[in-house]
Measured scan of single mutants.
Amino acid sequence: MATDAALRRLLRLHRTEIAVAVDSAFPLLHALADHDVVPEDKFQETLHLKEKEGCPQAFHALLSWLLTQDSTAILDFWRVLFKDYNLERYGRLQPILDSFPKDVDLSQPRKGRKPPAVPKALVPPPRLPTKRKASEEARAAAPAALTPRGTASPGSQLKAKPPKKPESSAEQQRLPLGNGIQTMSASVQRAVAMSSGDVPGARGAVEGILIQQVFESGGSKKCIQVGGEFYTPSKFEDSGSGKNKARSSSGPKPLVRAKGAQGAAPGGGEARLGQQGSVPAPLALPSDPQLHQKNEDECAVCRDGGELICCDGCPRAFHLACLSPPLREIPSGTWRCSSCLQATVQEVQPRAEEPRPQEPPVETPLPPGLRSAGEEVRGPPGEPLAGMDTTLVYKHLPAPPSAAPLPGLDSSALHPLLCVGPEGQQNLAPGARCGVCGDGTDVLRCTHCAAAFHWRCHFPAGTSRPGTGLRCRSCSGDVTPAPVEGVLAPSPARLAPGPAKDDTASHEPALH
């Protein structure tokens, strides 16, 4: 009773807030009518008042009428009001819900409408889902798969039609296919003929059939049928067999079959498995989609049935006599038709004709302190090069084509190399640097090759510096006499390219 009084008091307290929050009759008014909170006449009256005075006034009048009803109607109103779709449509209802007392429970059932309790003993237990329907569909599909699609060729003596089998029958139906081979029951999904010589313990000319048996419980189990008994694959494991010639990621696949039913060829011909030897223990289905393919039931050349050999690369099948050149017997292992072999060759040939990528240039590290003349020119003028003790990398590039010797140069053309002071002394051009340390401070000019250098860098042994005729380390061993002091540049003949010694390969005349 306390809860009923509290709900009535809360409705009177929030009546105006609810009326202002509800700006549309749908969905709240319609939901109240659906849950029998508002009768039909009051529903029509509220809609009429909404058209006349507006939605807030109409709902305020409806809530005032609701306060005169019993506690069950008020409880049902609060339940409908706080439904998710009403809270989404009328956003101003959320503060009312947040301020609702926590001790007021809106989930209690309506009085007088409590459903009768059902004894637990009368409640049926839930049924577990079964796979009976899938099993029945598999039974119905198996006879259809064994139905012949056409008439065999005159040369083929193997013609068999499976008798119709009602689904209610649980007995196995067997077809006489000759040579002791028996087909599987209607619940078998796949059958492959297997030679009895590969099964340990088999006697006589009995041949087993590799099947997948579907049981009534819905589970499946792969086994071997020899005669009327089934054997699990673990009985046929043979770890010492060295003649297993397995197909790549293979499961067994029928390579020879008669049109209309699988079996042995007439005249004692023995149908073979995809792999010879003992049956392997793992009978998992292969991951290669080509091995799941269903080959055609007629020859791809003459479009006739009979004894066919199936290609492992495509769905086509052929007569042995229709092949070019014809085959006398079934080859062992994987067999592919000429079209598949030709496609494989065409895929391999473009790969062989692809040009080989060019090898990157060989990189040879230079000892610290040495650099090529090109690196000396590329440096920024007026700045010493940083990191001189790091190992430089010199790339061996292809030799350029031989060019004509340089033409003779006048001494005026070499004027930018040297600057003559007032006393006739050779001065260095701006930006000249030593080729060893890279520093341009207090550098000297070689009178023979006009290269800038430090005496301490080229002659670290402490050799005394002569007063005139300074030469760098590369030119100090040259027998050519030094030019007379005061000459602007060496003779043009000295600039012609010539053979250089091994220790002077990195010091070429550089223009500054």
Results as ranks from 00 to 15, higher is better:
4 D>N: 03
6 A>Y: 15
10 L>R: 06
12 R>H: 01
14 H>W: 03
18 I>P: 01
24 S>A: 01
24 S>W: 01
25 A>L: 12
27 P>E: 01
28 L>K: 08
29 L>P: 01
30 H>A: 00
33 A>L: 02
36 D>L: 01
38 V>D: 00
38 V>Y: 05
40 E>C: 00
41 D>T: 07
42 K>M: 05
43 F>V: 03
45 E>K: 03
46 T>Y: 04
49 L>S: 00
51 E>C: 01
52 K>E: 10
54 G>D: 07
56 P>G: 04
57 Q>Y: 05
58 A>Q: 00
60 H>A: 01
60 H>P: 00
60 H>T: 02
62 L>Y: 02
68 T>F: 01
69 Q>G: 04
69 Q>V: 01
70 D>F: 01
72 T>Y: 03
73 A>T: 10
73 A>S: 02
73 A>H: 15
73 A>W: 00
78 W>Y: 03
81 L>C: 07
81 L>T: 03
84 D>K: 01
85 Y>E: 00
85 Y>G: 00
86 N>S: 02
89 R>M: 00
89 R>G: 03
90 Y>T: 04
93 L>R: 02
93 L>Q: 01
96 I>K: 03
98 D>W: 00
98 D>P: 05
99 S>I: 07
101 P>N: 03
101 P>D: 03
102 K>V: 08
104 V>P: 04
104 V>Q: 12
104 V>A: 01
107 S>V: 10
109 P>S: 11
110 R>T: 09
111 K>W: 05
111 K>V: 14
113 R>S: 10
117 A>G: 13
118 V>I: 10
121 A>K: 13
123 V>E: 08
126 P>Q: 01
128 L>K: 01
129 P>Q: 06
129 P>E: 01
131 K>F: 02
132 R>H: 04
133 K>S: 04
133 K>E: 02
134 A>L: 11
138 A>V: 11
142 A>S: 09
146 L>P: 06
148 P>Y: 15
149 R>W: 11
149 R>N: 06
150 G>P: 08
151 T>F: 15
151 T>D: 13
154 P>F: 15
156 S>E: 04
157 Q>D: 04
159 K>A: 04
161 K>Q: 07
161 K>T: 08
161 K>L: 12
165 K>F: 13
166 P>E: 00
166 P>C: 14
169 S>P: 15
169 S>C: 09
173 Q>A: 09
174 R>T: 05
175 L>P: 04
176 P>R: 15
177 L>C: 06
177 L>F: 15
179 N>V: 15
180 G>D: 04
180 G>A: 13
181 I>L: 06
182 Q>P: 03
191 A>F: 00
192 V>T: 09
192 V>I: 12
193 A>R: 09
193 A>S: 08
194 M>A: 06
194 M>N: 06
195 S>I: 02
195 S>G: 08
198 D>T: 15
199 V>H: 05
201 G>Y: 12
202 A>R: 11
202 A>P: 08
204 G>T: 10
206 V>N: 05
210 L>W: 05
214 V>M: 03
216 E>H: 04
217 S>E: 07
218 G>L: 10
219 G>R: 08
222 K>C: 00
222 K>L: 02
223 C>E: 07
224 I>A: 04
224 I>R: 04
225 Q>I: 03
226 V>I: 08
227 G>N: 05
231 Y>M: 05
233 P>A: 11
235 K>I: 05
235 K>V: 14
237 E>V: 12
237 E>H: 09
238 D>N: 05
238 D>L: 12
240 G>H: 02
240 G>L: 13
241 S>N: 12
241 S>W: 08
242 G>L: 12
245 K>D: 02
246 A>S: 07
247 R>W: 04
249 S>V: 12
257 R>E: 12
257 R>N: 00
258 A>P: 13
258 A>Q: 05
259 K>G: 00
260 G>A: 07
260 G>C: 10
261 A>R: 06
265 A>N: 15
265 A>F: 15
266 P>Y: 11
269 G>N: 03
270 E>T: 06
270 E>P: 15
270 E>R: 06
272 R>K: 04
272 R>V: 08
273 L>C: 06
273 L>E: 07
273 L>Y: 13
